[in-house]
Write a protein that binds this DNA or RNA. Structure first.
Lengths: 335, 335
DNA sequence: TGGAGATCGTGAAACGTTTCATTCCACGAG
DNA sequence: CTCGTGGAATGAAACGTTTCACGATCTCCA
């Protein structure tokens, strides 16, 4: 197989310990020997075997990151933030995609634990997973991303969706819309429920009755297609809708399409607010007002918390970090 | 630290060899002993140390996959295809994102080689990388994704972009458009050059002169924003544009927005064809005609070729697989 | 001249598995 | 009663590193 440190030592005429030192503590070995060893290394095409290194070392310099859906821009922004911090601190990141399936999540947790990663960042399919608790009990630090642990057994980083819903609602109210249509996904999802709660809070704060001022359309899937169909059906019924708040940008784009294709002008006839501020929101047929989440920061904060816990397990205290989202106004409400 | 196989053996009152057998060849150990050992394992919370296992085994069951940009739907579809095949064949996939930076690519190649992955799937930042050649020379099989190696030193899987451009061109020509505007990215990119070449071929085949029938706008970036700006500027000049073919869907969406906001109707006044058929193409304000690439299949084929080479290195012959793209007609040309 | 440091290099142990030749044991056939 | 057979468990070697206590050599100064 591939040459080992021993082959290098032999060829360079030194001991294996010296070769190892060249690799890990170059300052401990004399200039000339170092040169000889490096020459031997490149002559043989030696590449360190990290299994052996890690076995001996007993600990690794890597973190696991398990996300729900790599196709979702939210998560690769998070991943980017995690990678930045990991890089700065000399850690490697093992990226895993659970695809929202518990089985996949558990398999990856197993693999990561077998690899003895230093810690794990995860958006669990559901909080309170037994497998995850076990990992933590056995001593691998864990940070929840975009989720909170009610029992506060670990750190977590998330964004306040209630505030997000409130921002959207207050914005539409400030434009004079007293009635708001809310197109959302399953209200059993914490995100959707929170965003609606925020919207209700804004409406109540403006002195209206949420139950009558807000009309909710709840769909199974949160994509453009279902929102398009739902909006067309709603628009066919009557013309009373003047403002829509959607639980994510894809749905908002679906509503936008339905509006345009039914002859409505946006924002003159219909104001639309989305959520997430995906890259394409700004480039839609009518650029979309949306709620932006500090995604990279979430990743950065989560990685920092994790490394902090890895480095000072005794003194570490778990924290629940909560970021605030931000309103980005564009043409779809800029009437 | 975490309990080892030795601790388990002790607790179960057997030898370490037996514990290892329970883990790897359960059929070799008697029912009752197996039960005792499994009980000890779960009592201690034992998790196998994969570094040690792999060190001893000398070889791993994992493949590396290095992509240019995880934010690009093309690549995570490819990744999904790779994962499917890897799963079926019992391999694990290590996913890496080079972000189009040679430095990151090289770092990941190094890491993967140190981990002794069985093989590497990669879309290199540029073909002919020395680091990649070195990897291959040292015996790690390699497959290029969405690229070809002119020297045929390895397998590769790609899509025929010339055919794609030809399909788009032929489609517009068949609708009666004799003049076509082509909005594209840097023609130094193989993809862009090929798509244009295909367009020219279609135009020539229809009996027109490509040089006069095709107007090319070449932009630095291939996103909606730059295409929007370019299209607005072009539309301001005159009204002679009746058909546009864009080198990717994001650009097409930018052109679509420019058209709508300048009062043009799509497809009545302007027919638009994109490329890639990204998920959102079907849900745009006017659903977009596009060229679809068999992305998952690319991933599947690449993984199959790689595993084939890993399993039969002696008899393996390198192949260059080339898929054909497909035209998807939607409203943006359905005049 | 001798001795104290400093500077470099050595060699063996250890990390946690898997493998495989070996031993152990029970049982049935002769 | 012996022998052979085969299933089950054992124990030591090996994988490629890193570490660390220990030598060897050299330098410098009393």
């Amino acid at each position: 197989m591939s040459p080992s440190i021993k082959d290098v030592a032999e060829r360079a005429g030194v001991s294996v310990g010296t070769v190892s030192n060249v690799l890990n503590h170059p300052e401990r070995v004399a200039e000339s020997t170092r040169a000889t060893v490096l020459a031997a290394i490149s002559a043989l095409g030696f590449v360190r075997n990290s299994s052996a290194a890690q076995l001996r070392a007993g600990t690794s310099r890597s973190l696991g990151l398990i996300v729900l859906d790599l196709a979702n821009p939210f998560f690769h922004e998070v991943a980017r933030g995690v990678e930045q911090v990991a890089d700065e601190l000399g850690y490697a990141v093992v990226l895993c995609n659970s695809d929202d399936q518990t089985a996949r999540e558990n398999r990856y947790l197993q693999v990561l634990e077998e690899q003895r990663v230093r810690g794990v960042l995860i958006t669990p399919v559901e909080v309170g997973s037994e497998r995850l608790d076990a990992l933590r009990r056995r001593g691998t630090p864990t940070v929840l991303v975009d989720r909170h642990d009610p029992r506060v057994n670990c750190c977590s980083v998330a964004v306040d969706d209630v505030v997000g819903g409130e921002l959207a609602g207050a914005h539409l109210l400030s434009l004079g819309h007293a009635r708001i249509l809310h197109v959302t996904g399953p209200l059993s999802l914490r995100q959707c429920a929170d965003r609606l709660a925020g919207l209700r809070r804004a409406v109540a704060a403006a002195g209206h009755d949420p139950d009558t001022a807000i009309e909710v359309i709840e769909e199974r899937a949160m994509n453009a297609r279902t929102a398009y169909d739902a909006a067309r059906a709603r628009f066919a019924r009557d013309d009373e809708v003047g403002a829509v708040f959607c639980a994510n940008d894809l749905m908002a784009l679906g509503v936008l399409r339905a509006a345009l294709s039914s002859g409505r002008r946006v924002p003159e006839d219909l104001a639309i607010v989305g959520y997430d501020d995906i890259e394409f929101a700004a480039d839609a047929a009518v650029p979309l007002t949306s709620i932006r989440q500090p995604t990279q920061q979430i990743g950065r904060a989560a990685a920092q918390l994790l490394v902090e816990e890895c480095d000072h397990p005794r003194t570490h205290a778990h924290q629940q970090v909560m970021f605030k989202p931000e309103l980005v106004v564009r043409e779809s409400t800029a009437g």
